[in-house]
Design a protein around this nucleic acid. Structure first.
Lengths: 334, 334
DNA sequence: ATGAAAGCGCTAACAT
DNA sequence: ATGTTAGCGCTTTCAT
């Protein structure tokens, strides 16, 4: 049996409450007693039972991170940022993957109502259902901070990048390189983040007297094979695009593969700019021009904001923190 | 206030214990009562308080995953495998990053003694301290399964790849390509996994009448800049290696960068084979020959073994599950 | 088949 | 400054 506060109390001939207070450095305990208790506790290697104290205090010191997946460099890096803040704050990080399945996402969020976590950081899934109502319900019971993939109609703090502007920059970059038929690789699941990137993209085209060919706007899925087929279709037509903007990392690397397969030379036959945070963009063949999001900072910022809420610091529920992305030109668009 | 078992009991004019048993489908409750309880519970959207039940039952339904970092494709993919099994088993996944710091690793493991998690899956950090004692202590109190980076002298279940054989295959592959001065990119932190890869590598050289030049065995660190300097040193000497085996992903991509910087052509001037699970190895410039570990399967296997232990299925404490890696030849070694 | 009661380990209001 | 006591919400004997 592990050592409890009670054992310490008995051994030291004190009341449990005295020990409890001493351990939490209460002002109503003499420093002498505090010392005795703390010495004895560390001698016995005492660790408080987290369940007892969670049950009593109604807080778990756990936060949940809900993500579509983790095999995407953005989310991997963001987790680092989140975890570092959590560790610093003495919180524990629980991770939940939705695999872009909105039903699974829903059941995960519903479970949070049990109080297992004190707060939630999430990037929404792009599944078929629209879970707006679920997010709102969740946010009502548990502090919730969205990051990256946010749900705009949920009242919750949000940490995003300047997606519209970035979409604009990506398109403009390609236009200035002389591209005339720029395609856009979107994602199914009506994610606002994709829509914003696409809208920025469209605006840039518009401002330069261009327009996207309806056939050059394609929607990727969670299934690799389907994506390959979509991309093969897109890239083998005679009127194929002379440039692409990839709105997420995975579909872009898939496009790279299809270009290889079809012997389309990047950037000669087709130029590519992609939203991606992978550190090896520079090593791709050819190196990839990216819109790089500050993934680590976004994770940190989201976590900091969540902890502010958890510490009852009032912050605007609809606060939106916008961190800038940067376009890094590499060989795929020269 | 959230709905408790007690509210259900009062409303239904039953005893709390009856409700508790009914909800857990006890045989001593009539099916009629069970139905009433379960209907009412779902009507009220009842969720059991996990802390109350953890406190009473002395189990949390949480497992910990302790990793050096998550911005490495192997660990990212492994998390997917782990999480999928955990979700299926109704367990929750807590994630802890050591950042290759053995002191931080120690404090993380020590905290587990509080009972916050029922089991631990871990890949050990390569920090300076040797935490063998800490692992053993942890394993004594909490079921522990190592995966990938294991500590061989701890009695615990282990899931690994055939590192010695893979190191051998990597070296042999390069020897057969005619390489004569093959270097090895190791990692500081005396990880057995690296040692095994190196030993297999050495054996292959030996079997082919070669030997590694002492200067061609270098040890990477957790610091990017230091690694760049080490690699610059290695690759700019006149007697530089004509091939490299990268024992971990990160140092390999760093070597790629340094090769670019020094205008060393891969594979003409130098061939490279690396331990890596990244799916974009095929898109690197040039595409990278990899020893690919079955990361997803390793995560799944490790999780399955942990759950076997948690369900009191007796399994050999020193069981070692070896999953095969495969060498995939690409352009970096042709 | 149902209920009463004790208690998991801790906290906090209320004595003393 | 220290102690007493009453729970937190649940599980689990042990009655009935």
């Amino acid at each position: 049996m592990s050592v409890t506060i009670r054992k310490i109390a008995v051994d030291l001939k004190l009341a449990v409450s005295t020990v409890s207070k001493a351990l939490r450095d209460s002002h109503e305990i003499s420093s002498e007693t505090k010392q005795r208790v703390s010495d004895y506790a560390s001698k016995l290697d005492y660790l408080p039972n987290p369940y007892a104290s969670s049950l009593k205090k109604r807080r778990s010191c756990n936060i949940a991170v809900v993500l579509p997946e983790v095999a995407d460099s953005f989310f991997s890096i963001a987790i680092n940022g989140i975890e570092s803040v959590a560790q610093e704050m003495g919180y524990h990080v629980m991770i939940y993957l939705t695999h872009e399945d909105s039903r699974r996402e829903e059941s995960i969020l519903r479970e949070f109502r049990s109080g297992r976590v004190d707060g939630v950081l999430m990037s929404v899934s792009g599944g078929s259902n629209h879970n707006g109502y679920v997010y709102s319900q969740c946010a009502k019971e548990t502090p919730l901070v969205f990051f990256d993939r946010v749900c705009e109609d949920t009242h919750a703090v949000k940490v995003v990048t300047d997606d519209f502007e970035s979409g604009y920059k990506a398109a403009e970059h390609l236009i200035l390189k002389g591209c005339k038929r720029i395609g856009f690789l979107a994602m199914t699941g009506n994610l606002k983040i994709i829509e914003n990137r696409l809208n920025g993209f469209r605006k840039a085209l518009n401002d330069h007297g261009q327009e996207i060919d309806a056939g050059h706007l394609v929607y990727g899925t969670h299934d690799e094979q389907i994506n390959f087929n979509i991309l093969r279709g897109l890239l083998s037509e005679t009127n194929r695009p002379d440039a692409l903007v990839g709105s997420v990392e995975k579909i872009t690397t898939q496009a790279y593969s299809v270009c290889n397969e079809l012997n389309l030379l990047i950037p000669n036959h087709i130029k590519i700019v992609a939203f991606s945070s992978t550190q090896i963009a520079t090593l791709l063949n050819p190196s990839l021009t990216t819109i790089t999001q500050p993934a680590y900072e976004m994770g940190k910022t989201a976590a900091h904001l969540l902890f502010k809420i958890l510490e009852k610091k009032k912050i605007d529920v609809d606060r939106v923190e916008v961190l800038p992305s940067i376009l890094i030109e590499r060989n795929s668009s020269r």
